[in-house]
Structure formats: C-alpha cells, structure tokens
Design a protein around this nucleic acid. Structure first.
Lengths: 161, 161
DNA sequence: ATAGTTGCAAACAATTTGCTATAAG
DNA sequence: CTTATAGCAAATTGTTTGCAACTAT
C-alpha cells in the first residue's frame, strides 16, 4: 500500500506524516484522472472541505515525487503534472490530442531493454523514460474536416487577389 | 533552406517577413544548443545588439512551430523550448540529466512504424512523438557517489537515537 | 494606403520563498 | 519540548494580451 510506503520513507528521512500529506496522496489514489496538476490537487482537497494551502500542495507533490510515489509528467502546455508511479515497472505512455488536450494512455514495455542499451552507449544511468505521441483524437479529426469543407466553400467564391 | 520555406509559408498565409522573424530563425540556425527557450532566443538576439521584444519572440517561435519549422519540446522543468524540426523524418530523442539538466541527443527511427500501429489501435491521427529518458549523466553520478561516501562517514559516528 | 507586426506595459498563470504560528514525534 | 511543517502573502518566473505606433507589401 502506497500509504505505508510513504510512512516508511518519511521515517527514514526524519520527516513527519501530516494530515495534508495524506490528503494529497489520497487525491491521487481517488482521482478520476491520472496526471493531476498542483492546482487540481488543491481544488480536489478544498472541495472535500479539507484545509490545505497551495504552497503545501506544491511542496507535497514534490516530496512524493522525490520519494518515488509520484512521477512528474509535463505535456506541451508546460504545466507540471504528476501521476502515481505504479509499483511494477510496466510503463504506460501518453497520446495527447493537440487540439482538445485529451490524454489517452496505452502501455508498452518494449522500451525497458532500450534503457540498458542507451546506458551502455552513453554512460548515463537511466531511471525513467517517457514516450508521448501527439496528434488529433478522432473527434477533433471530424471537427477539422468539417471546418475544411466550409473553408473550401468560402474560397470558391472569387476574391480580389 | 529553412529561410525560403518561411518566406513561402508566410506568403501563403498572407503574413509578412520581418527583420524580427529573421532574427529569431537565425538564432536557432546559429545556436550552440538546440532547444532554446523564448528567454534564450531573446537574449541571443539582444546580445547581437539587434532590436526585439520578448512578446515578439514568444509570438514568433509560436508561429515558426505552427509552420513546422520548429518543434515544441518541454522537459520536466515545465519551460517551453523549441528546436529546429529537421527536414526528413529521422527523429532524434533526448536524454536528460535530472541533476544538472544536461541534455544529450540520440537518434532512433524505430518508432515511426509504431505510430501507424497506434493510429489503427486508437483512431488518433498521429503527427509527432517524443521520447525522453531521464537519469544521471556520468559526471553527476560521480558527484553523487562522492557525496554518499561522505554521508556514510558522518553516520558512522554514533548518534543519540 | 492597408493590413499585419512590433514594443511596451500591464495582466495572467504557475511556482517558489520567507516567515510566524502550529502540530507531530 | 523540539523541530518539521503549514499557511499566508509577497516575490519570481514564464507567458499572454491590448493597444498605439510602425512598416512590409
């Protein structure tokens, strides 16, 4: 259980288990979405009528990531999000719609071996990797297609150029 | 030449070629580092004693990315950077040191086919992907090792615990 | 001459920091 | 009782926007 893992790690570091740290961790465990931003965690906690400040959220997600319970993940909007670093090593990756921002996950273990290859090649000690695909989700493809047709109709009319 | 590509694209969009747009593009072409942030582009231009404002830099890198000359790339610090989207499709990927931020590039075409597989599986229309490895560069590995030894020496002394 | 583009300063958003009061061990 | 932590507000950092002045076409 992630909970105990946190307690143990905190003890090792001579840090304390607090209500706020529990609340943040719980937010991730109970969230609909994976990958929450600090802002989202904050809102989640506040909506449950629990007391926390944003500064604490920022400090806590950072701590949880350092301890290895969360993984930092940043899409192209530059907002820092976090997701639970699932126990085993089976990685999942992200498929992001450039239009609506929708994020879909999919798993693929193929890249674990690759880490080793690259370690040997470069001398880096790799401990994580992230693969992201960017494109248009089915729904946005349809929207864009509809838009294109519309534009064709307009540019069919003669312009003074 | 990337230069002409920009001119052509601008004409198509009824937009104009300006000194500032040239300066930004040139910054990328002549930069030591790939992946520059807007801030870095700004400084580069100013150091050459050329006139530009930050707002223009932001607007221009955005434009260049839209046109396909640059590619947006965001590491875990959440800062938006851009790199030249080299002509052919041969992708390169990034190896980032979590400690000092050093970025190393390496290429690998393996993932092109994968895009197709995922398109079929998910219905997304994929147009880009990014693979990043995080870890410790050789130099930071050494530093960390040295630090660990030091800590051992300290904790070897008895503590009142 | 007609838009598109710039620069500036102000607005905004995300994140960090300094400090006092509080609470965990 | 000691020291880590929380909360708050102010400071920083990265990015966007409104608008008047400017300039490519």
């Amino acid at each position: 259980m992630t909970h105990d893992l946190l307690r143990t790690e905190l003890k090792r570091r001579k840090q304390r288990m607090t209500a706020q740290r529990e609340l943040v961790l719980r937010s991730f465990l109970e969230a609909d979405s994976d990958h929450l931003s600090a802002e989202e965690v904050y809102r989640t906690v506040v909506e449950k009528r629990q007391r926390i400040s944003k500064a604490t959220v920022y400090r806590t997600v950072d701590l949880l990531a350092e301890v290895g319970i969360l993984r930092k993940i940043v899409f192209r909007d530059g907002v820092i999000r976090y997701e639970i670093a699932e126990c085993g090593k089976h990685h999942h990756h992200h498929l992001i719609c450039s239009e609506c921002g929708k994020v879909t996950e999919f798993s693929m273990d193929l890249l674990e071996n690759l880490e080793e290859v690259i370690e040997k090649k470069t001398g880096f000690r790799i401990n994580d990797h992230q693969l992201k695909f960017y494109g248009l989700c089915p729904s946005c493809q349809r929207k864009k297609q509809a838009l294109n047709k519309q534009e064709e109709r307009i540019s069919a009319k003669p312009t003074k150029d």
